[in-house]
Design a protein around this nucleic acid. Structure first.
Length: 636
RNA sequence: GGGCACGUGGUGUAGCUUGGAUAGCACGGCAGCUUGCGGAGCUGUUGGCCGCGGGUUCAAAUCCCGCCGUGCCCGCCA
């Protein structure tokens, strides 16, 4: 049976290792003085673009520099000293490159056997064994629905967590709920004073109310004053207003969770801002950082607790870009600023201070696991206390995140600075306009720029196409299929764009199901499933069947399938979901070319091995898709 | 004023961390491919001073320096 994780090196890295040791031997014999490390050898190996060779090393160029010799000559000499190995069939020198050809039969056997044996675990890694990481996402304001920008955060957080888990880390999916602050006070003022009753999904209703109150505040200064007063009252945690605010926020978060569930996004724990305040985490954080803080008795910052920026800039020169000379941690009225609270919160995450949080079950999730939540009354549980934390937060907050990291260094906890990573993602704009929850430009004409409306629109579009499909035998299942296709389109569209880049949202792109898209990958998968369905026999492939593998599209596909684990490790290390989308597009495209040119069911002697390649493709594609939170369909 | 991020065919993008042999892919345009395992596909074609200028190197989209453009940030808001 397949284990939960693969503990062996990938087929691809197995053959690269083989090439490295062969290179090493050749160099030891020809150029004992070269002194290149294994890492340098490994890094010199690439997969060449052309189809002629399978692996290539540029190490001769590096050696040439060291020895003052001609690269072509060196490569020629080395290749003469590199005999065929287990998987590497031959090595030749071309223009200074060392080009290796794999034994396609042996290598195909290796890859196909690994996929067959490991099944759902194929592509996973033991890289993070025994390590725990917190992923904080999406931390949406509980005053309005998820808009198309919030969705980017939620999808990124989900995939990054999946990647960590695929690499054997324990990932704690955590959502920070800011139920205090002006945005909640604003919505609460509307809830109390405008007398409306919720007549639609609560977050949508509340968001529309929130926009109206913001307009009201712009016109009536007294409303603004009342909202600010409400904001202060909420912070005490015990007043009627504070309880009303929490209750409203909880209803909004429940509605957010409905959206999350629709998108197949789950989490482990919610940490509420009001519980952080209640826990007096701040004073504990101030205790451990007193050495770097000051409380000026006069001047601009009189009565506040601040950190002087000249303490920080020697460690992070880029923070010199401030007009101010200090950052306020605690306001003169005694309440913490955003940075203050976040610093305290992260001291808790890393186990530096104990919050004494109490937790209760917040709600059940469709994946069968409950979400826990901090709460005024509850029981202690084990959350937090990690050595690594990823904050999925918009790039516009880079400055504050950076200050926080430097603060940990300054109080002697360099390891926290190293373990804390800000996964900064680019903005999601709508038609060149900055998306703003407050202004209400997420409210569209007919369809809103919300995660809910996006999914509804995409599902509608998928349904239109599915209804025309003659391939869907299970007509009862149209709804399910359309939903899956729609989700694949949306998720893929977001995740394929490099995290740091800004996105301009357009309905046309969001509803495009062709080309480099999720539906394209699903379509390819469905065709593969059809081929498997057409061949009744699932006879195991034999050694003689492998001899039918050619050096054409079949072997190209096998080679790419051999790189699944490398892809997952790279995506996890670099926190880049687009590494996985790229891989899937390449895989699907190669598979399409493969079945277009090489008959499977009518493949004659090659039928068995080609069927095994098709089976393997479905396994690899489905494993990689599930990392992106995308479910497959067997017909569409 | 300063800081950070981004700049790749008409459009959207991959590659940049770790320099390497013709810069991948999609959309759009044009021309084809279904009595074949599924046309949400496949094939061919069109289109690129990799923002600009220097530098390092045998070799630069990739590294360094300087510009330019766009976005974001520099609050006792979050």
């Amino acid at each position: 049976m397949a284990g939960l994780h693969s503990s062996s090196p990938s087929p691809s890295s197995t053959v690269r290792q083989e090439l490295v040791s062969s290179l090493k031997k050749a160099m030891a014999s020809a150029y004992p003085e070269a002194g290149l490390s294994d890492d340098e050898l490994m890094l010199s190996i690439t997969v060449p673009q052309g189809q002629e060779w399978d692996l290539s090393s540029s190490i001769a160029f590096r050696l040439a520099k060291k020895l003052g010799a001609n690269p072509a000559e060196i490569a020629g000499k080395l290749s003469g000293l590199m005999p065929a190995g287990n998987y590497v069939a031959s090595v030749e020198a071309t223009n200074g490159y060392l080009n290796a050809r794999l034994d396609e039969r042996k290598y195909t056997s290796l890859v196909l056997a690994r996929i067959r044996d490991e099944g759902g675990a194929y592509g996973t890694s033991a890289m993070g064994e025994g390590r725990k990481v917190i992923v904080e996402s999406p931390s949406a304001n509980p005053a309005h629905p998820w808009h198309v920008g919030t969705l980017r955060n939620a999808l990124l957080g989900n995939v990054v967590s999946n990647l960590f888990e695929a690499c054997s880390y324990e990932a704690e999916r955590e959502d920070y709920i800011d139920d205090l602050g002006l945005q909640v006070a604003t919505a609460l003022w509307g809830w109390i004073n405008m007398g409306d009753k919720p007549d639609k999904k609560f977050d949508q209703w509340l968001g529309e109310l929130y926009v109206r109150v913001n307009r009201e505040m712009g016109q009536r200064p007294e409303v603004k004053k009342q909202v600010e007063a409400l904001n202060k009252e909420m912070e005490d945690g015990v007043s009627q207003q504070a309880r009303a605010g929490r209750e409203m926020a909880e209803r909004c978060v429940m509605a957010h969770q409905q959206t999350a569930f629709d998108y197949g996004i789950y989490r482990d724990v919610m940490i509420w801002e009001s519980d952080i305040v209640r826990s007096h985490l701040l004073s504990k954080a101030l205790d451990i950082s007193s050495g770097i803080l000051e409380k000026p008795s006069d001047g601009k910052y009189a009565g506040a607790v601040v950190i002087k920026l000249d303490r920080i800039t020697p460690f992070a020169g880029e923070l010199a870009g401030s007009r101010e000379d200090a950052k306020v941690i605690v306001r003169s009225n005694g309440t913490a600023t955003y940075i203050g609270k976040d610093f305290a919160f992260h001291a808790w995450k890393f186990g530096l201070i104990d919050a004494g949080f109490k937790y209760r079950k917040f709600m059940d999730q469709p994946n069968g696991k409950p979400i826990y939540s901090t709460a005024p009354e509850g029981s202690p549980m084990q959350f937090g206390n990690v050595e690594r934390a990823i904050n999925v937060i918009g790039g516009e907050q880079a400055y504050e995140q950076q200050i926080m990291r430097v603060m940990f260094s300054l109080i002697g906890h360099e390891e926290i600075t190293r373990g804390l990573f800000h996964l900064a993602y680019g903005r999601v704009n709508i038609e060149g306009e900055k998306l703003s929850a407050r202004s209400g430009n997420w409210l569209g004409d007919g369809r809103n720029y919300t995660a809910d409306d996006l999914l509804a629109e995409a599902t509608k579009r998928a349904m239109e196409i599915a209804q025309k499909s003659e391939k869907i035998t299970d007509r009862q299942n149209l709804e399910h299929i359309s939903r899956a296709v729609a989700l694949s389109a949306i998720k893929f569209e977001y995740l394929k764009i490099a995290t740091e880049k800004d996105i301009t949202f357009s309905w046309q792109n969001a509803l495009n199901f062709e080309g480099n898209s999720g539906p394209y990958v699903l379509y390819t998968y469905a065709r593969a499933m059809r081929i498997l369905g057409k061949s009744a026999s699932a006879a195991a492939m034999s050694d003689s069947d492998v001899s039918q593998i050619t050096r054409g599209q079949d072997f190209q596909l096998v080679k790419l399938m051999g790189m699944a684990q490398d892809t997952v490790e790279k995506a996890c290390t670099e926190l880049r979901p687009s590494v996985v989308t790229d891989y899937l597009l390449g895989l699907s495209s190669l598979f399409s070319k493969f079945y277009e040119t090489m008959p499977v069911v009518k493949g004659g002697d090659a039928k068995n091995v080609r069927l095994e390649v098709v089976r393997s493709f479905t396994a690899v594609a489905s494993n990689m898709l599930s990392l992106l939170g995308i479910a497959t369909v067997s017909e569409m």
